[in-house]
């Protein structure tokens, strides 16, 4: 009788096999999913790394081009070349005796060259990246979830 009762609760062998196969397949799917995600992220990271390298080269190349163009422009506009070009176009040095002077309101021949904004107190500047963008998930969790009861209780008082 006892044996019979036990036997009544025992799973059929094929059911057990199906469960094991199901569990195995579930584990397999999980492993495959994790592997897939890992591979995808790795591929993206590698792609991003290569992109960074490529962009760094492009930046360097662009900077080199800017340097070259600046130099070429400066050479093309050198005092000697500008003088030669002016003479070629029929201009000549002004004869002081024939100069006509007129007053130009607001014109300051000694105005300072401005290449960049003047010096400012950088201590008063607001940080460009907000702190929330720099905190980790754990920081966020501690700040917003863990400490919530405290702040709630403070609010209750």
């Amino acid at each position: 009788m006892k044996n019979r009762l036990l036997q009544a609760y025992k799973q059929a062998p094929w059911r057990l096999q199906l469960q094991w196969i199901g569990l195995f397949l579930l584990a397999l799917v999980l492993v495959a999913a994790v592997t897939g995600v890992y591979l995808s992220i790795s591929a993206q990271a590698a792609g991003a790394g290569r992109n960074i390298q490529s962009l760094e080269y492009q930046i360097e190349e662009t900077n080199n081009q800017i340097s070259d163009l600046t130099t070429n422009l400066a050479k093309a506009q050198s005092a000697e070349k500008m003088m030669a070009k002016a003479e070629e176009m029929g201009f000549h040095l002004l004869d002081p005796a024939s100069a006509v002077y007129i007053e130009v309101p607001g014109f300051d021949p000694n105005a300072e060259l401005v290449l960049a904004p003047p010096r400012v107190n950088i201590l008063n500047e607001v940080p460009i990246i907000q702190s929330s963008y720099k905190s980790s998930l754990w920081d966020w969790f501690v700040k917003n979830i863990w400490q919530l009861p405290d702040s709630a209780s403070e609010g209750g008082n």
Partner: peptide
Amino acid sequence: PYLVEALPEVDAGASLVLTIDREIQA
């Protein structure tokens, strides 16, 4: 490529504006 990061910005040397006037100098 997994270790690649953007290169840190290396500050360029300071530029100078002289009191020299190129036309007067020439």
